[in-house]
Design a binder for these strands. Structure first.
Lengths: 331, 331
DNA sequence: TGGTGCTCGGAAATCGCTTGCCGAGCGTAA
DNA sequence: TTACGCTCGGCAAGCGATTTCCGAGCACCA
């Protein structure tokens, strides 16, 4: 079923059929003809060929989204927001999974370029390694040059690219202050790999928030995953001193830390308190319920889309909002 | 940067450039020329226009994936598998979120048709409503006819479409038997909306598994979500009799049930035991740890792709495997 | 040396659609 | 009645690739 079949069936020319169907601006088509075309199209169950349209119009209607791991609720929350905003903007989402691998990320950016996506959203996981980063930067520049489209990164703004991040520093600082106010003095931070920027920001924000009302007695790196949190917590617990509070830089790690504590026979919050970051809904029913910082991840995703698509009126409040949620794990 | 720019730069014709780049079969191109073309392409950072290729070749290289809710770990697990398999098959994933809405599902199928996707995977959430279902069926048939491509549904096979589902009945039955063997006699089932087929299958399988060694004293419907589980459990606990075990047809609902019990001051597993289904990794650290049935959701997603893509050698073991995992919540 | 059969570049058709341009037809005003 | 200006179909030229087909050039054999 091509458009020309429809035109034939309606007894009009190709151009008229095209104009009738996508109601071309600054051109009107006779209502009677239009209806005939529409009827024929419906009759034949015509669906326009998206690729042909893209090529004829000179631009596609896709938005490329790159995330590292869809099973991680952090990514899937943001992806959900991206997807919703894309739908609202009338774009189709092309999804790529990068598996925390910069090479894959780069090849997905190339794919986005091949598809001439109208926008590109890359979610998180940027490492500080300069050399690799500049390779990514150049691939992104190629993408921009080829498509003229926008790029948004959810995470830190290390690249020369619009970036949108939750209020990592501020949220972590506020969390620290709240913890200090509750009388906690000594702290440990379970952070991600040292070059992981989001983790770094949160750790630094937390440190700032403590100011000199609290002392950081340990900083342990681990994978940004549940198991990473478990391992880091296990390591921490094997040491002589035990902090009042353990701050894991995200909820998934905090859950791992909780499990490690449990397995080690250390009670939370009695023996040690634990806090996370993100307030992932799926983790709401963890026991003890997790003290954390709520950030609007889905809205961050939506904002990233509006950035990538270069929309004008953009509400960037999502990048500022955060809420410290004190729950049982730090009681 | 078009291919003809590359051809010009390399001093060859368009056809030669094309052949050099995608190494056309049954045609060889002079190595020297080929290298010149490749060099020019690299130099100019040429990226083929996917839309143009799709139209010229007469087929796209995309696979459309429709899920209902990316923030639900059930869907994101499957989506992760789909995405991985698509990558392996060299396809690009087009992602659509249907929000449990049949109308949106249908329009996403139309979109897949517009993109002439090589395959279509629809994940779950099929309701038994005949009328709507047949509308979906007809849209799917249109898709098939237009693309000649395959469709796979993850869930029940109510439509005339290849379907792939985890071992819902078998797994639930095995769970029931394991629970019976531990001496539990009375049961309640928290299921999804009555027309939700996966929930129904699991409930029925569970019932079969009990045979006459156990008695179902309540069957409560709720949303297929955490809150649905919470509400259903609350309702159950308000009744006079209390079952030995509550089986929620998925983990997310089971977590809600756990929370409801906790809020009602009912201890698990002392006062009542709770079991779920899926064994979602993110929920592994719930306390009390959840008895459930592990099904290989990611591999189910992969299998769905091979079905949709019409691959020959397909390992369908993922649809048979299950493992009853007894944990603290039914101790 | 002439004929035959390859190999392999390049010209051109094609995919399905959009859109610039031309011109037919009609209404209106002088 | 003539001229002018609109409105609105349709022809045809792209968009950026792939692929068919043609023919030039060369090797090989008789």
């Amino acid at each position: 079923m091509t458009l020309s079949d429809v035109a034939k069936a309606a007894g009009v020319s190709l151009s008229t059929a095209s104009r009738a169907i996508n109601g071309s601006k600054d051109r009107t088509v006779n209502p009677e003809l239009r209806d005939r075309v529409l009827a024929a199209a419906a009759e034949l169950r015509y669906a326009p060929n998206a690729a042909a349209q893209a090529i004829a119009r000179g631009r596609s209607t896709t938005l490329s989204l790159i995330v590292h791991d869809l099973t991680d609720p952090y990514f899937s929350s943001i992806a959900a927001g991206v997807s919703r905003a894309a739908k609202a903007a009338g774009s189709t989402v092309i999804l790529g999974i990068a598996e925390h691998d910069l090479a894959q990320t780069m090849s997905l950016v190339e794919a986005a370029r091949s598809h001439r996506s109208q926008g590109l959203v890359i979610v998180g996981g940027l490492r500080a390694d300069t050399e690799l980063l500049s390779a990514l930067q150049s691939v992104i520049d190629d993408y921009r040059r080829a498509t003229g489209a926008g790029v948004a990164i959810v995470g830190q703004g290390v690249l020369d690219v619009a970036s949108v991040a939750p209020a990592n520093r501020e949220g972590a600082a506020a969390l620290a202050r709240a913890l200090v106010a509750r009388g906690n003095r000594t702290y440990a931070i379970l952070t991600g790999p040292s070059d992981h920027l989001t983790g770094r920001d949160r750790a630094e924000g937390f440190t700032e928030g403590l100011a000199d009302s609290g002392e950081i007695i340990a900083l342990i790196e681990g994978d940004f995953t549940r198991d990473g949190g478990y391992a880091a917590m296990t390591e921490l617990l094997s040491e002589a001193v035990r902090p009042d509070v353990v701050f894991a830089v995200n909820d998934v790690m905090a859950v791992g830390a909780l499990a490690a504590a449990r397995d080690a026979g250390v009670r939370v919050p009695e023996d040690v308190r634990v806090a996370g970051f993100d307030d992932i809904p799926t983790l709401r029913d963890i026991v003890p319920s997790l003290t954390t910082v709520r950030v609007p991840l889905e809205r961050i995703g939506e904002f990233a889309v509006s950035l990538a698509l270069g929309e004008d009126i953009t509400d960037e409040s999502a990048t500022q909002e955060y809420e410290v949620v004190l729950r049982d794990s730090t009681n």
